[in-house]
Design a protein around this nucleic acid. Structure first.
Lengths: 111, 111
DNA sequence: CCGAGGTTGTTCATTCCCTGAACATGCATG
DNA sequence: CATGCATGTTCAGGGAATGAACAACCTCGG
C-alpha cells in the first residue's frame, strides 16, 4: 500500500473508531491485506494526525498500542465516508446499466 | 496481465466480436490497460484457439491483422458473459447493502 | 526501384506495489 | 534473571503492469 489507497484508509478508520485496540495484524486480516500494508497505511494516518497511538504498558495484556481517531480523524472519517458513499452509488448505477446490457446481450429474462 | 484476468479476457472478446479490426493499441485504450497487457492477453486468446488472427496484406489500409472469434471463442464468450453477469449481480447486491450501511452511519436520508 | 514516413505487432528492462519472513522491543511469568 | 510471547517495524523478494524501443510491413512520392 504505497500511494495510500483511499478505501483502505477509510476502512481502517472505521474499524478503529469501533475498536481502537485492534492489532495491526488484526486490521490486516480484517481488510484482507498484508501486515506490511496495514502498518504502512496506519503509519500514514498517524503521521497526518488522523490517528493517535496511545501505548498503555500498565495494561494487563501485552498489547502495546491503542489507536484512537483524533478529532481531525473523526471529521476526516465522515468526509471520506461521504465521498466513498458517492463513489459506491455511482458504481451501483454503472453496475445496473452493465447488468442490463449483459442481460440483453444474452437475451435472457431476469433470473 | 499475467495470470490472465477473466474480466479482461471477456472484454476483449466482446470488443472483437463487434469489431475484429481493432488494433492492440485500440483494445488497450478501450480497456484502460497498457499495450503490453493487451498484447499478452490477446496472445493467450489466440494460443487457446478462441481468437484467430487473419492478416490481410491486400487490404487498402495498413493494419495487419483482424482478430476474429472462432466458433469456440463465441461459445466461450457466452459462457464467460453468464459467469460475469452472475458476479456482477452479486456485486450489485453487496453494494446495495454497503450503501445502506454507509447511509445509516452518516444518518442521512436518501439523496 | 528506392527511401522516407507511418502503422502495427512484439519484446523486455523498469517500476510499482504488495507480501510475509525476519528482526526488535517490551511485557508477563516463573 | 531468563524465557516465552505478542506486538510493531523493516526490507529483500517477486509478480504484474507499463510503455519505450525495436522489428516488420505497407504506402507513396520521386
Amino acid at each position: 500500500m504505497n500511494s495510500i489507497d483511499e478505501a483502505t484508509r477509510l476502512q481502517i478508520m472505521r474499524l478503529l473508531a469501533d475498536n481502537p485496540e485492534l492489532t495491526q495484524r488484526e486490521l490486516a486480516e480484517a481488510l484482507g491485506i498484508s501486515l506490511g500494508s496495514a502498518h504502512y497505511c496506519l503509519r500514514a494516518l498517524i503521521r497526518t494526525g488522523l490517528v493517535k497511538a496511545d501505548n498503555f504498558r500498565h495494561s494487563s495484556n501485552r498489547r502495546r498500542y491503542a489507536y484512537f481517531l483524533t478529532p481531525t480523524g473523526l471529521a476526516e472519517k465522515v468526509r471520506a465516508t461521504r465521498a466513498f458513499l458517492e463513489r459506491k452509488q455511482a458504481e451501483h448505477e454503472a453496475l445496473q446499466q452493465e447488468i442490463a446490457r449483459l442481460r440483453q446481450e444474452l437475451g435472457e429474462e431476469r433470473s
